[in-house]
Amino acid sequence: MKFKLPIDQRAWPGSAILLALSFLLYFICHLPGWALVVFILWMGHLVFFRDLPCRPQETNVIYSPACGTVVDIETVAEDQFLKTACIKIGIFLSIFDGHVTLAPLTGEIDHIQYVPGKFLNALKQDSALKNEANWIVLKKEGKKVVVKQITGAIARRIYCDVKVGEKVAVGRKMGIICYGSRVEVYIPEGMSRLQVRKGDYVRAGQSILGAWINE
C-alpha cells in the first residue's frame, strides 16, 4: 500500500527552503531563537497546505468547498454564468485554515474563467468584486452551482486542478488558494434549502451549505 502524506505537493519547495534556513540558523549561525521562529513558520506552512479530510455521505446536498467562516449570505443577480437570482455564500479562509478547494457536489465542470484583479483584504466585501479570482461552474442533472476562488491581501496565487468537461466526485480537490483568501458559492435561488447562517464555521467536504429541493 502506497503511503501519501496529506500535504499538497505545492508545499514542498517553500517547505524545503524554510527547513533548510532553520537548520542553517541553528547549526551554522548559532541563532537558536531565530531558528525556532523559522521552524514554527515551517510547521505553519505545512498546516496551511494540508489536504482536508472529506467524508461526504449524502448525495442530495451541496457541501462547503472550503474551510472557513461564513461572512455573508445574500441574494444577488448572477448574470455572468447562471443568469438568475442566486444565494451567494461568502466564506473567509484565515491563514490557519486549510486552503484547498473541494467540489461541493458530484457533477461535471461546465466552465472555468480566470479573472485578474487586485489583492485587497479578503474580509472586505468589495474584495470579491475587485480581487483576482477564478470561477468554476459545476453542473449536475440540469442544476448549476458556481464556486469562486478569490485571492486576499496575503494570498497571491490561485491554482485550479480541474478542466472543462471533467467529471468530478463530491470532495474532489479542485485547487488551492495560497494563503488568506475567500471562497464564494452561488446557488440558484429557490433550488435549495440553506443549512448555514452567517458566522458559522464550515468544513470543506463535511459541512452542508444547502439541500436540493424536491430530491
Rank of each mutant, 00 (worst) to 15 (best):
A11Y: 03
I62V: 13
G14M: 10
K118R: 09
D110T: 15
G199C: 00
I17M: 12
Q206E: 15
T84R: 07
I91V: 14
E74V: 12
E166D: 09
G175P: 01
R50T: 13
W135M: 05
I89K: 03
I177E: 00
S15K: 04
E74C: 12
F49R: 07
T151S: 11
Q195M: 15
G107V: 03
V70H: 09
I112N: 01
L138D: 05
P116M: 04
N131F: 08
R182D: 02
L25Q: 05
F39L: 15
V147H: 06
P188W: 01
C178M: 13
V100M: 14
K124L: 13
I109H: 00
F119C: 07
V70S: 10
A77W: 12
H111I: 05
E189N: 12
S15F: 15
V100G: 09
D72C: 02
V185P: 05
L138S: 10
E184K: 01
G142S: 01
V168N: 01
A204S: 06
F92M: 13
V202P: 05
T69V: 14
Y179T: 08
R157V: 14
I7C: 01
Y63C: 04
K140N: 14
G117E: 08
Y114W: 10
G68F: 07
G175L: 00
K83C: 14
L194A: 05
F49M: 07
A103R: 03
A77C: 06
K124R: 12
Q125H: 10
G142A: 08
I213D: 01
N121F: 01
F3P: 08
I7K: 02
A169P: 02
K83E: 12
P65Y: 06
C86H: 08
K163P: 02
E166A: 11
V71E: 11
E132N: 11
A85N: 14
